[in-house]
Computed example of a mutant assay.
Amino acid sequence: MVFPPVREELRGIEPYGAPQHPLDLVPVQLNTNENPYGPSEACAADIAAAAGAAAASLNRYPDREHVELRTALAAYLARDTPHRITPEQVWAANGSNEVMLQLLQAFGGPGRTAVSFAPTYSMYPEYARDTHTRWVAGRRADDFGLDLEAARELVEAEQPHVVFLPSPNNPTGTALAPEAIGALCELVGERGIVVVDEAYGEFRRAGSASALELLPLHRNLVVTRTMSKAFAAAGLRLGYLAADPAIADAVRVVRLPYHLSSITQAVALAALRHAPELLAAVDSLRSERDATVTWLRDLGLDVADSDANFVLFGTFADRRAVWEGLLALGVLIRETGPEGWLRVSIGTADEMAAFRQALSTVIQDATQDSSTDSSKEQS
């Protein structure tokens, strides 16, 4: 008998999590796609006041349906679509992670299938595992875009109940064309739902449409967002979706009672009141991202086109050695994605300068070591 008596498929599994190091030891942390620009003192004070006001009634349960917050989120989403979004179309939870889990609780489960296209967000198969949903991963094209014909074939063969289409995709940063999303919505039909994960949607390039614009055309479409990235509120843990009201109602069935605390709701509402300020850095982060892509390509590296606040680059024969070399110089990035690739989050101008200097040093040292080894072999 092995203790604890955990489910067999969970035995020996390590919990999900990116590496964490103290800031005093690793001052440049570019591995979790956070917005490097925090709220102003005035914004933080307003948020603190909202939390304090909510604290006065913590003896009472929060609004189970978080109606005020859903109304505010619907108003915020209106900036990305010409179509009206109502509070009944919106649902929020503790990060988009919980939103995704609730979607699979409602639409996945035993005897049902979820599909996505790798490389993609590593938590999707874990949501499937945790809800006893069968998981099937197709493949992306060589440029990390979606091979629509291959995707059609997989969907036709597997008949999934849930399809995950992150746009921009993590870890590649690749955005999807609205036509591809619409085609898969039509192919899946009302047998299932298509979830477009727009966690990094605010970082997409100018002129790129949000999947929110497609909501009136496809009843089975779900668009998810988060306040963790562009909104500079990773510590808040607030994710949300927009969909047909019937889908939001289905998620309400599986949510735990009072799943969003009074504090979370109050702080999220305060943050939304400061949306222009909290989103003010998005344009500069886009510019820094594009400059990083150009610089990496000038080094002769392969770089994926990115519409997010991170860049996937490679390829390295030993990416772990490069990652460790950067860490030794005080720069933490992410060892993720296909073999040989690394991902760097976009930070402040100073942080990106430190990253460029460190990567240049690591590559130069590796080149010198290779030349030394070659000379030894010849001698």
Results as ranks from 00 to 15, higher is better:
F3R: 13
P4G: 01
P5F: 11
V6C: 00
V6N: 01
L10F: 12
G17P: 01
P19A: 06
D24M: 05
L30F: 01
T32R: 14
T32H: 08
G38C: 02
P39M: 04
S40Y: 04
A42S: 07
I47A: 11
A51S: 13
A53H: 07
A53T: 11
A53M: 05
A54I: 13
E68F: 01
A72V: 02
A75V: 04
Y76D: 14
L77M: 12
L77F: 12
L77R: 03
T81N: 05
P82Y: 04
R84G: 00
T86K: 04
T86M: 05
T86A: 07
E88G: 15
Q89A: 11
V90D: 01
G95Q: 03
E98C: 00
E98A: 10
Q102F: 01
F107W: 09
P110N: 09
G111A: 03
R112I: 06
V115L: 10
V115Q: 03
Y124E: 03
Y127E: 01
Y127G: 05
D130Q: 14
D130N: 13
D130C: 09
G138D: 06
R140C: 11
D142M: 07
F144N: 15
A150N: 00
A150Y: 03
R152S: 12
F164D: 03
P166Y: 07
P166K: 10
S167W: 07
P171H: 01
T172G: 06
T172E: 06
T172D: 09
L176A: 07
A177D: 08
P178D: 08
G182I: 13
A183S: 14
A183P: 10
C185S: 11
L187Q: 09
R191L: 00
R191D: 05
I193Q: 01
I193Y: 00
V194K: 03
D197V: 12
Y200H: 10
R204V: 15
L212F: 02
L221A: 04
R225A: 05
A232P: 04
L236G: 06
L236N: 04
L241Y: 04
A242M: 02
A242D: 01
D244K: 08
I247G: 08
R255M: 08
L256Q: 14
Y258K: 07
H259R: 11
S262A: 15
I263R: 15
T264P: 00
V267W: 01
A268S: 13
A271W: 10
A271E: 08
H274M: 06
A275M: 02
A275Q: 07
P276K: 13
E277Y: 05
E277R: 11
V282N: 02
L285N: 06
E288D: 03
R289P: 02
W295D: 03
D298N: 06
D307A: 14
N309Q: 09
F313K: 08
F316A: 10
D318F: 12
W323P: 03
E324M: 12
G325H: 08
L327Y: 05
E335W: 09
E335S: 09
E335V: 03
E335L: 14
T336D: 09
W341N: 05
W341F: 10
L342H: 12
T348S: 15
A349K: 11
E351Q: 15
A353Q: 12
F355N: 08
L359W: 07
V362Y: 00
A366H: 05
Q368G: 02
S370I: 06
S370R: 14
S370M: 13
S371T: 12
D373R: 14
K376N: 13
Q378A: 15
